[in-house]
Design a binder for these strands. Structure first.
Lengths: 213, 213
DNA sequence: GTCTATAAATGGATAGAC
DNA sequence: GTCTATCCATTTATAGAC
């Protein structure tokens, strides 16, 4: 009411920032409380423990990513506009990257998140399938059923792990460049299925994304 | 000499098994010692701590995967035989999957492994590039320079993260089927660049791999 | 809602005997 | 090389005052 941000929300915000920066495993509840300049006891009043914080953060993430992933299922996008969708997905994952950086560890300690996360992966795959189907209906790409299925899986995996791959392989730290790179790679997955001279499309993409950096 | 396995090696073997099963973060030095029925003090005689164990395991992995990845750079493989190479890479990663399941966490605590791991990723990419180049020379595929670069990156990422993606998305636990699936997906990445009717090659792959299960 | 104080549990690490 | 015993640090978690 007074415009003062609630402690609960401050905890979530700070925890997210710390998790992303230092890695979830390296951050203790005491540290979170310390940064916020509140007592550990106070923190435990709001959340039963670190797992509860993680689950609350996952709630946020789940809701946002669901909205993003559901959008393309209803309306159909042109191939040129698809990169915006991919971009948004990467941004969303980037905002909650602590989760993706320690997937198995977190899912082992928060078992109830496992089926929910699995469902998100399947939604990603469905969205990819849906996009590909609509692109094909518009004649923007041509591919067989088997190709579409396999491509959709790889697409979902790409969206899920590309950011991590680049941060590990290169010393690159500029998140925006990493994301741009991921969008370019995603579009290059589709390129071979665009009718006409394949290399034309590839060149267009290359020029476009190298201009971005 | 007497045929008795050295304690040091038993520690490494047991640690690897526990790490893969329960996740590295969930396994303590005390637990490893407990399973081996040796004292924690004894374990600390052989390794300064858990990090030392992890680094020793990484030494093993690094040596093996280097051999695997270096092989195709020298000799050139036919496209039909390439899947064997991919299969071996997946098997190797599968054997040390604890590492891939908590990449960022481990690299934060063992900073000296970071550049070594980054180097492996780059080697993966070089190997992929080399394979694609030789396939093109043989006329087995045709693609532009930009396509080849992008494909090699995605290929490396696929090899690195596919196993994790499938274990998370599906409830599938049969590691052999997961690996077969990964090989199929990898081959489907190359399929569009095979000259002639694309869908022919895709169908061949599909039949071949569905017969495997 | 928030604090202080403190309990309880765990995991990492070492000293010294055998 | 291996064990027992023990210590220290960290983290989670709770009780009770304000």
């Amino acid at each position: 009411m007074t415009g003062k941000v609630k402690t609960r929300d401050r905890i979530l915000k700070t925890a997210l920032a710390l998790f992303n920066e230092e890695g979830e495993a390296q951050v203790s509840t005491v540290e979170i409380a310390g940064v916020l300049e509140i007592s550990p006891g106070n923190l435990y009043y709001h959340f039963k423990g670190k797992e509860a914080i993680i689950e609350a953060l996952f709630d946020e993430f789940e809701e946002e990513i669901r909205q993003v992933l559901s959008a393309p299922i209803n309306r159909s996008l042109s191939i040129e506009d698809n990169w915006i969708f991919i971009y948004i997905v990467f941004e969303e994952i980037n905002d909650f990257r602590f989760f993706y950086n320690n997937l198995t560890g977190i899912l082992e300690r928060c078992p109830n998140l496992r089926p929910r996360f699995a469902k998100l992966l399947r939604l990603k795959e469905e969205t990819a399938t849906s996009i590909l189907a609509s692109l094909e209906q518009d004649g923007a790409i041509t591919c067989s059923r088997a190709e579409r299925t396999a491509l959709a899986s790889r697409f979902a995996a790409h969206l899920t792990f590309w950011l991590q791959f680049v941060s590990l392989a290169a010393s690159e730290t500029d998140r925006r460049r990493i994301i741009n790179n991921g969008v370019y790679s995603a579009m290059m997955m589709i390129a071979p299925y665009v009718p006409g001279d394949r290399s034309d499309f590839a060149e267009i993409l290359k020029d476009y994304f190298s201009a971005q950096n």
